[in-house]
C-alpha cells in the first residue's frame, strides 16, 4: 500500500519539478514548484518524518514560494526567448548526471546498508522530542539564533528604510 503511495507521490514530485524548469511563464513555474514541494512533503509523511513534512509545507510551499511570487510580480518578469543551448550546458548536465548515478551506485553497494537499523528510532523523531531538545540541550544556540534574527530584522530596516535626518538628535 505504502509502495503505491510512494510511486504516486514520487511521480508527482518529479513531473512538477520538470514542469518548473520547462515552463516559460515564471508564475506557472512557481506554482508548479508548490506542487513539487507538496509531493515531497507527502514523501516525508510516508517516511514518518511528520515534523519535516509540516516544515516543508509551512516554510517552503508557504513562505518561500510567496516570496518568489512577490519578486516575480514586483520585477514583472516576462517569459521571453529561451536561452540558446550551449555545449557548456551539456557538459554540466552530463557531469551532474554522472555524479548522481555514481552516488546511487555507491549507495547500493555500500556495506553500511546491510547493517540493521536501530530498534529505537532515537530522539528527534517526534515533534515533542525535538522541541524538548531544543529547549534543553540546544537552548544556547536557539538563543543565539534569536539574536541572529534580531540583527537581520534591524539590518533590513536600516538598509531599506528612507532615513529622515530631521528626526535625529543633534550630532556630538
Amino acid at each position: 500500500m505504502s509502495d503505491a503511495f510512494f510511486y504516486i507521490f514520487a511521480t508527482l514530485t518529479l513531473a512538477s519539478a520538470i514542469l518548473v524548469v520547462a515552463n516559460r511563464n515564471a508564475v506557472n513555474s512557481a506554482v508548479f514548484m508548490i506542487v513539487s514541494f507538496l509531493g515531497m512533503a507527502s514523501l516525508f509523511v510516508l517516511l514518518e518524518a511528520y515534523f519535516l513534512a509540516v516544515i516543508q509545507v509551512l516554510v517552503y510551499a508557504g513562505a518561500v514560494i510567496v516570496l518568489f511570487l512577490f519578486i516575480i510580480m514586483l520585477l514583472d518578469v516576462k517569459g521571453g526567448d529561451r536561452q540558446k543551448f550551449r555545449p557548456v550546458t551539456a557538459i554540466a548536465t552530463l557531469a551532474a548526471a554522472a555524479l548522481l548515478f555514481t552516488g546511487v551506485g555507491v549507495l547500493y553497494q555500500a556495506p553500511s546498508l546491510a547493517v540493521a537499523p536501530p530498534a529505537d528510532p532515537g530522539v528527534g523523531a517526534s515533534l515533542k522530542d525535538f522541541g524538548a531538545l531544543l529547549f534543553t540541550r540546544y537552548l544556547l544556540p536557539m538563543q543565539v539564533t534569536g539574536f541572529l534574527l534580531l540583527i537581520a530584522m534591524i539590518g533590513v530596516i536600516v538598509l531599506s528604510k528612507r532615513f529622515d535626518a530631521s528626526k535625529q538628535g543633534p550630532t556630538a
Binding site: Y138, L140, V144, F147, L148, I151, A152, V158
Partner: peptide
C-alpha cells in the same frame, strides 16, 4: 557580532559553531 565571535572561538560542537558563525556573518553583511 562581538558576542557571537566570542562564542564562536569557544564552541566545541558544530551546531554551536554554525549558529555563531552565521550570526557573525549576517552582522557583517549589514
Amino acid at each position: 557580532v562581538t558576542g557571537a565571535m566570542m562564542l564562536l572561538v569557544q564552541s566545541h560542537h558544530f551546531v554551536m559553531l554554525f549558529v555563531a558563525l552565521e550570526t557573525v556573518t549576517v552582522g557583517f553583511y549589514i
